[in-house]
């Protein structure tokens, strides 16, 4: 790890870093209000974001140790295709296929974990497995979608429990579990210790390797579980599912204020990050007819799918830099 220099940054920087997500949420809500979008319509986009959010919870634990998991989107695709193929070609009952999908996710995560424990940087490992798992999902399915899954299975991804979509319930459960594990167990304290200084943690008898293996395994299991809900919601196993989800999940974590370099952050922050990013993205979608003509330009600037991505990317970089500076930590 590079040398870490800690200085106390000006108070206003700390304040602004804490305030930034709230401001963005306000901006998103104001945009939705300006576009006259009804709350019920906004809620329709929640299930998809709750899936991403659930990934972000597991990712938070990894990022607290200074690691990263870029393969979660690809694991989703692999697990989803496992579910579809076992059901259609091997004629497994759908429930058994779903369990197998979660386990395949866990296996993929365990492979990530094993490679990280071997001493490879998590960025390199999961970048490689991101391509590998996505390719595997395409290979086993021949690139074909598997649709026509049983209707009662699809209900799992479309039902509401007391008016709350199942995915949002899943996210709630994940946040609760994540909060307890990260902030109220010894395991959780170890995460911060590793993120602060991995070498020191090792010398302090923190079981770093076992912990890291568990973290990536958990991340894979969660991705498998999310894949089941996602597949149920769309009603089809899609080989390209989950593409780009890892970036959205990372953005949620970073937006909340968890440091990319580890050692600082938490589940509550990620919860805020999820809410902010979700509503910002939903609001930007509705602003598709918003055209801004910049002075000195003839053609109006309009929000499209691509510009939305650019905005989210710039946001991620800006917030990451700002948070790092606000903590006075520079890697």
């Amino acid at each position: 790890m590079a040398q870490v220099r800690t200085i106390t940054p000006p108070r206003w920087r700390q304040w602004s870093a804490a305030l930034a997500p709230w401001l963005m949420l306000l901006l998103a809500l104001a945009l939705l209000n300006a576009e006259e979008v009804k709350p019920r319509a906004v809620m329709r986009f929640w299930p998809a974001w709750a899936e991403t959010g659930t990934l972000a919870v597991a990712l938070t634990a990894i990022m607290l140790t200074g690691g990263i998991d870029l393969s979660i989107g690809s694991i989703m695709a692999l697990a989803g295709m496992t579910l579809g193929l076992l059901w259609r070609d091997a004629h497994w009952p759908i429930a058994a296929a779903a369990v197998a999908a979660v386990l395949v996710g866990g296996l993929a995560g365990a492979i990530n974990g094993a490679l990280v424990v071997l001493g490879l940087p998590s960025l390199v490992v999961t970048l490689a497995t991101m391509a590998f798992y996505a390719g595997l999902a395409l290979a086993i399915s021949g690139g074909e979608r598997i649709s026509g899954l049983p209707a009662d299975f699809c209900e799992l991804g479309r039902e509401r429990i007391a008016g709350v979509p199942t995915q949002v319930c899943l996210l709630g459960a994940a946040l609760m579990a994540g909060w307890i594990v990260v902030h109220h167990t010894r395991f959780g304290r170890y995460l911060f210790a590793i993120g602060d200084n991995r070498t020191a943690a090792t010398f302090a008898a923190v079981p770093v390797r076992r912990l890291e293996l568990a973290l990536y395994l958990a991340s894979g299991l969660v991705a498998g579980l999310v894949a089941v809900f996602y597949t149920a919601r769309t009603g089809a196993a899609i080989p390209t599912a989950g593409q780009g989800r890892e970036l959205e999940a990372i953005t949620c974590v970073v937006l909340g204020g968890t440091l990319v370099t580890g050692g600082f952050g938490g589940i509550g922050r990620t919860a805020l990050g999820i809410v902010v990013l979700a509503h910002l993205e939903i609001a930007l979608q509705f602003a598709d007819q918003l055209k801004i003509t910049l002075p000195g330009s003839d053609s109006p600037w309009q929000l499209t799918g691509q510009t939305r991505l650019i905005i989210l990317g710039m946001l991620l970089i800006a917030v990451a830099i700002w948070n790092q500076r606000a903590r006075g930590t520079r890697a």
């Binding site: 300006a34 007819q289 918003l290 055209k291 003509t293």
Partner: peptide
């Protein structure tokens, strides 16, 4: 800023 741009169009 965004509001003006929006309504104008």
């Amino acid at each position: 800023v965004t509001g003006c741009g929006g309504t104008a169009n």
